[in-house]
Design a protein around this nucleic acid. Structure first.
Length: 293
DNA sequence: AGGGGAACCCGTACGC
DNA sequence: TGCGTACGGGTTCCCC
C-alpha cells in the first residue's frame, strides 16, 4: 500500500528502528541456539570487516546466542563452545536487504538475490537477500563492536536515556531538527519516516533549528518519538515497497501514519492540507504548516 | 570540530 | 517497442 503522495515523490522504505526490532525479535525466536555449519557468499561484496576465510573460522563451532537490535542494525551474538568470546554478525539492510530463514520451503523467487547464506547444523539456513546490495553484513570482534556501537547515539526506547539527556543532545545542534533526529551519532535508529511522524505529533516545524527548541518542546518531541516508535513496534513496523519482516510479512503501521506519505491529504488534527517538501535535507518531508511551528 | 559531498548499487521510471 | 539514462536511499569516508 503506497499513498499517492509517496508514489509521486518516489519515496522508498528503509527499515528503521521498529522494523529492525520486529525482524530481530522474530529471528531470535527462530534461530537462537542454532549451531553454524558453514557460510556461503554468492555475492560477497556485501561482506564487511572480514573476508570469507575469516568468517568461516569464526563461525566454526559457534552458535547463535541471541538476535537483537542496535540502531537500524540486526545483531547476531555468537557463542563459542566455551562461551568466552562473543563475536557479532552485524547486518545493515539499508533499502532492499532482508534476512530469511530457510527450512527448505523457499521458492525460487525467495532465493533470488541471496548474497550470503549461513547453514545450520539442524539443516536450516539463514539467507541475507539484497536486490540492490547497498546493505552490508559485517563480522565484528567484541572490541570492534564496542567501538562501533560506541560511535552511535543512545537508544530512544532505552529507559536509561532520559528526557534531559535527549534535550541537551538535540539542542546542541544548529541543524534543522529533522536532520538532528536522524543523525545516528546523536540518536540511534530514527530515519525519515519516524522523524516526520514524531515532529507532527509534537507540533514542531521540521525545518526549525534544533538549538531553537525550548526544553519543553524537546521534551514533547522525545515523548512523541517514543510513543510513535512503540506504537509502530506493536504494529510490526511500516511497510512501503520492499520491507518484509523475518516471516516475510508486511508491517501494519502504514495506516497509522499521520505525516509520512500523506502530502496533500488533510492533517488529522486541523484538516488542512499537509505540505510535502524536499527543501530541508533533500529527503521527503511532510508537515502541517498550521499545526507545526 | 562539524558540515558538505561523493561513493556505494541496481531496479524502476521516464525520455527519446 | 526498445533502448538508454537519471534517480534514490543511509552510511561511510574524504575533504574543507
Amino acid at each position: 500500500m503506497i499513498s499517492a503522495g509517496a508514489k509521486r515523490l518516489g519515496w522508498p522504505l528503509v527499515p528503521e528502528l521498529p522494523e529492525t526490532e520486529t525482524i530481530a525479535r522474530d529471528l531470535n525466536e527462530m534461530i537462537a541456539g542454532a549451531r553454524f555449519r558453514a557460510i556461503e557468499a554468492p555475492r560477497l561484496d556485501v561482506l564487511r570487516e572480514a573476508d570469507l576465510d575469516a568468517w568461516s573460522d569464526v563461525i566454526a563451532g559457534a552458535s547463535v546466542q541471541r538476535v537483537w537490535r542496535r540502531a537500524k542494525l540486526i545483531v547476531l551474538d555468537l557463542s563459542d563452545r566455551d562461551e568466552s568470546t562473543s563475536w557479532h554478525i552485524v547486518v545493515q539492510p539499508r533499502f532492499t536487504g532482508g534476512l530469511i530463514v530457510d527450512s527448505g520451503a523457499l521458492t525460487e523467487t525467495d532465493r533470488a538475490y541471496v548474497c550470503v547464506t549461513w547453514r545450520f547444523a539442524d539443516g536450516r539456513a539463514l539467507h541475507y537477500r539484497d536486490v540492490r546490495r547497498l546493505g552490508t553484513v559485517a563480522l565484528m570482534s567484541p572490541a570492534r563492536f564496542a567501538e562501533y556501537s560506541g560511535g552511535l547515539g543512545g537508544e530512544p526506547l532505552d529507559p536509561a536515556f532520559t528526557i534531559v539527556e535527549f534535550s541537551v543532545c538535540v539542542r546542541a545542534s544548529r541543524q534543522a531538527i529533522k536532520v538532528t533526529l536522524m543523525d545516528q551519532r546523536r540518536l540511534a535508529g530514527v530515519g525519515n519516516i519516524y522523524a516526520n511522524e514524531a515532529l507532527w505529533w509534537a507540533g514542531i516545524d521540521p525545518s526549525r533549528e534544533a538549538a531553537s527548541l525550548s526544553p519543553a518542546e524537546a521534551g514533547a518531541l522525545f515523548d512523541a518519538l517514543r510513543a510513535v516508535l512503540t506504537a509502530s513496534i506493536a504494529a510490526r513496523g511500516t511497510s512501503f515497497r520492499d520491507y518484509r519482516d523475518a516471516r516475510g510479512e508486511r508491517g501494519g503501521f502504514v495506516e497509522q501514519l499521520a505525516a509520512y506519505g500523506r502530502d496533500g491529504q488533510p492533517c488529522r488534527r486541523c484538516h488542512r492540507r499537509l505540505v510535502g517538501t524536499h527543501a530541508i535535507d533533500g529527503r521527503g518531508t511532510v508537515f502541517c504548516p498550521t499545526c507545526q511551528r
